[in-house]
């Protein structure tokens, strides 16, 4: 008797689990974004979110016939928040990397950006060699040549980077021991410390760096310098971060992304926000 009632109770508990199988697409897809990474995503003075990813996300959701809403979430809490089901997806300039694939899944990539340094316009690092050269990290010989060219100038300097990013992983692998690396919670904080002269350089994605260098507060005092790196440890481009096992949602979003690539919408949005087509190679 007792055993049977326990079984019945267990069945009751299990039933809704089966009904809401992991694979169902949520009625409203909640998408987390940092809201502090212009032009990818940023918060307007009135508190609303805007930027490349906000506009793109709305477009992709419309194509995939999904109801979506954006939620602002501090960068360092995005992956834990996704795992805790605080939201269902991440669109926050997050690159596909092997390390992240161990814990979460990704849609197709929707943009790819170089990473590099920004420095004090009047400081010695403004003369970093190979300025503007695109260096694919997959080509090891070329990458080594570029690193060897910049290392002498970077020796003993302090470089700021946002915590838990591909850029932090890059510095950790290639410049540890050459320069002191300081990790910040937000890019805004490392921008301020670069302007204050506490650090000699920041390492970040090109689009946000250009946005920072163009801000009235920093115009003329901060410039991009040195080679621009791509691929390898820096990832295969920004994509929508998803929980492992949410395959139905992934399939719908992938369709949506394929659709905006096909009819040129992605190219239009990319050009609007980045002044360049940053559509990643498909395949």
């Amino acid at each position: 008797m007792k055993a049977r009632s326990i079984l019945a109770l267990l069945a009751c508990l299990a039933a809704p689990v089966a009904a809401q199988a992991q694979d169902a697409v949520p009625a409203t897809v909640r998408i987390a974004t940092e809201g502090a990474y212009a032009p990818y995503n940023f918060t307007k003075p009135d508190g609303s979110l805007d930027g490349f990813e906000i506009e793109l996300g709305r477009e992709v959701c419309a194509r995939a016939k999904l109801k979506c809403e954006f939620i602002a979430q501090d960068w360092d809490g995005t992956v834990p928040g996704l795992q805790a089901k605080k939201f269902d997806a991440i669109m926050s300039g997050m690159n596909i990397t092997e390390a992240r694939l161990k814990v979460i899944d990704f849609s197709k990539p929707y943009s790819i950006d170089h990473s590099g340094f920004a420095v004090d316009a009047k400081g010695p690092l403004a003369k970093l060699p190979m300025n503007g050269a695109s260096i694919p990290l997959a080509n090891e010989a070329e990458a080594q040549k570029a690193l060897d060219a910049i290392k002498p100038l970077l020796k003993g300097t302090t470089i700021g980077v946002q915590v838990s990013t591909v850029n932090a992983a890059f510095l950790d692998r290639y410049l540890k021991g050459t320069a002191e690396i300081r990790e910040y919670k937000t890019t805004e904080q490392h921008d301020l410390d670069l302007a204050a002269g506490r650090i000699d350089a920041i390492f970040a994605n090109d689009a946000p760096l250009r946005a920072t260098a163009e801000k009235p507060d920093f115009a003329g005092s901060i410039v991009l310098a040195g080679p621009r790196f791509l691929g390898g440890i820096l990832g295969r481009g920004a994509a929508i971060g998803l929980r492992k096992g949410d395959t139905a949602l992934k399939a719908r979003l992938d369709e949506g992304i394929a659709s905006v690539i096909e009819d040129g919408t992605l190219k239009r949005l990319s050009t609007k926000w980045f002044k360049a087509d940053m559509t990643p190679p498909q395949g």
Partner: peptide, 14 residues
């Protein structure tokens, strides 16, 4: 919140 999510998961709250 991950821990709470896990506990809720046992009770069928997805």
């Amino acid at each position: 919140s991950a821990a709470l999510g896990g506990i809720a998961g046992w009770f069928g709250h997805a």
